[in-house]
Design a binder for these strands. Structure first.
Length: 260
DNA sequence: AATGATCTCAACCGCTGGTAG
DNA sequence: GCTACCAGCGGTTGAGATCAT
């Protein structure tokens, strides 16, 4: 569509950045701020395309970037989020302070994808719990009325329509049988994610059906109806629950913000 | 020590979504 | 509504590092 090809200009530097180029970029951004990547190279006096500058800044030069040594906790978080979100590296990176999407993508492709594909039986030498391995590897079972088997595809995180959000209080007012229904096949949420019902996607995080009867009063999060540690974990993973402030119910707006 | 195989990760490429005109 | 531009995303590449023989 007549789009200007990036980096096609003759005379632009390509490949690895030099220390001097890094200095120029950092000092320019420190002085003028991020943004306007298209014109930044010209204004900063860099022989690079805007995309290259943006990438260099975001993945390497930005303050607060952690490099290397991805911890076990971070690794587990990546696996869990990947099982939920798929290759949405920027979203996953958003839950890992100091990590970039590029780094997580690389780490997944070179290390974690192999680990996760290891058969779960036998020893647990990969460092993941068996449950975690299953969650990461297995696709959730499609709901009966699921639209087209777009299988293996994780959540499409762009919520198109939110039809129902059942408050935990409402759940608690239901009978035990109703609670069972609510927490059985789906969680108490009906978010239409481009044809995919969010509830079933979260179902694998639930414990067994036996857990349902144990629903207590202490969990009041968005996924409170399923009343499992996994649900609580998921809320934290998605930023829907502040680990320090148990009991806070996120608003729908919070929920959407957490996804988008 | 030499050499080929494998791994890692920074950078590039092409595409999409948002938006201003 | 159409077009063009910009920002951002995810897949891929390739140079350098590391490992195995």
């Amino acid at each position: 569509m007549g789009r200007k090809p990036c980096c096609s200009k003759e005379g632009l530097n390509r490949g690895a950045w030099t220390a001097m180029e890094d200095d120029i970029l950092v000092s320019y951004i420190n002085k003028h701020g991020e943004g306007k990547w298209g014109s930044l190279p010209r204004r900063a006096g860099l022989q690079r395309c805007g995309k290259s500058c943006r990438l260099r800044w975001l993945n390497y030069l930005r303050p607060g970037i952690k490099r290397g040594n991805i911890s076990g906790d971070e690794e587990e978080l990546i696996v869990r989020l990947h099982g939920l979100l798929g290759n949405r590296w920027s979203l996953i990176a958003g839950r890992l302070p100091g990590r970039t999407d590029n780094e997580i993508k690389n780490y997944w492709n070179t290390t974690l994808s192999k680990k996760v594909l290891l058969p779960p039986q036998g020893s647990n030498h990969s460092g993941f719990s068996n449950q975690l391995q299953l969650q990461a590897v297995a696709s959730p079972p499609p709901p009966e009325d699921a639209a087209p088997p777009d299988t293996g595809s994780p959540i499409r995180t762009k919520a198109l329509r939110c039809t129902t959000l059942m408050a935990p209080a409402a759940v608690q007012e239901t009978t035990p049988d109703e609670q069972h229904d609510l927490a059985g096949d789906h969680l108490c949420i009906d978010l239409d994610l481009d044809g995919i019902e969010l509830g079933f996607l979260f179902s694998p995080w639930r414990g067994g059906a036996d857990d349902v009867g144990a629903a207590g009063d202490h969990d009041h999060g968005l996924f409170g109806a399923c009343e499992t540690d996994q649900a609580a974990d998921l809320e934290e993973l998605l930023g829907l629950r502040d680990s320090d402030s148990h009991g806070a119910v996120p608003s729908l707006g919070d929920f959407e913000l957490a996804w988008l």
